[in-house]
Nucleic acid binder design. Structure first.
Length: 291
DNA sequence: TCTAACCTGATC
DNA sequence: GATCAGGTTAGA
């Protein structure tokens, strides 16, 4: 469910609420959901406090001080929230920490795909998931991105979904980015030209910044820690809009399957290979509109 | 590089 | 009842 903008929103909200706050201990944990580094266990949480909260790709990083880090990956349906201890726990609440002041940090996850790990910093640095992540899409250098794409034999969409190419994009934002960049998801990644790579990188920045500013996208499950929905779904140009009119050219948005994922695009604006395309210079303007 | 698998719930 | 879902990964 959550991609970079949603995870960034979660990190920001929790940072406001949790940093500087003490962690009294772990009250409840599903054994499949929370794993521990060497020598660590449920008792390791007691007496710690939140020194900082960061994000790398779609992974949340809670700095608990004393070289201890809690990582949380929300996967598809994971959700973090801070609630009064007296409030009824949500369904599928798999992790609960006591925060003091009669509040709890809770992780709930219907599909139970999400994972948390308590690690020492040295173990975190050796963590294979973290080590395999590519650069942040908002920071990646154009030359670096081109080089990474050139090594790919598969589709452009598949490459962008691979977290080792760039870290944090998922199914929604890849489709939105490719639409703004006017690139077909099935283009062979390695064949991307300079001008196409420039458009791609610019579209990444534009879409991700707008999505972060809007608090992410809510399609079905995603909720901010505050309980609010994201706002960026209203600005989606193609995702979830099969059969509707493209906001750029008026033609129909279609849904296809690419690398096994439902994929939305406007075939007129995103031709498989170059051809005259309708003026799409102003996708940016319509991207900001509320519909 | 693709598919199946991990789980459950919502929707067709 | 069958299919699909915003993620990742083991295995073919």
């Amino acid at each position: 469910m959550p991609e970079l903008p949603e995870v960034e929103q979660v990190a920001r909200e929790l940072r406001e609420v949790l940093v500087g706050r003490r962690l009294d201990g772990l009250l409840h944990a599903h054994p499949d959901v929370l794993r521990y580094g060497v020598g660590l266990g449920p008792a390791s949480f007691a007496g710690r406090s939140f020194a900082g909260i960061g994000r790398r790709g779609k992974l949340l990083l809670f700095d608990l001080g004393d070289r201890l880090v809690l990582t949380v990956h929300l996967r598809m349906t994971g959700r973090l929230s801070v609630e009064p201890s007296a409030a009824e726990r949500p369904a599928h609440c798999h992790l609960v920490w006591a925060l003091g002041d009669d509040e709890e940090l809770r992780f709930s996850d219907a599909r139970r795909f999400g994972r948390a790990q308590l690690l020492r910093r040295a173990e975190l640095e050796a963590d294979t998931f973290l080590r395999r992540l590519g650069p942040e899409p908002l920071d990646v250098e154009l030359a670096d991105m081109r080089q990474r794409l050139r090594r790919r034999r598969g589709t452009l969409k598949g490459a962008l979904l691979d977290q080792s190419l760039v870290a944090g994009l998922g199914n929604i934002y890849v489709d939105e980015i490719l639409h703004v960049a006017r690139l077909h998801p099935r283009l062979v990644a390695a064949t991307l030209r300079e001008d196409e790579a420039v458009r791609l990188r610019e579209a990444m920045r534009q879409i991700l910044e707008a999505a972060i500013a809007a608090g992410g996208s809510t399609i079905r499950n995603y909720r901010r820690p505050s309980g609010e929905l994201g706002g960026f779904q209203a600005s989606h140009q193609v995702f979830g809009r099969a059969g509707e009119a493209c906001r750029g050219c008026g033609g129909p948005v279609v849904k296809i399957v690419v690398v096994g994922r439902g994929t939305y695009l406007c075939p007129a604006c995103q031709p498989k290979r170059r051809r005259k395309i309708p003026s799409m210079r102003r996708v940016r303007a319509s991207a900001g509109k509320r519909t």
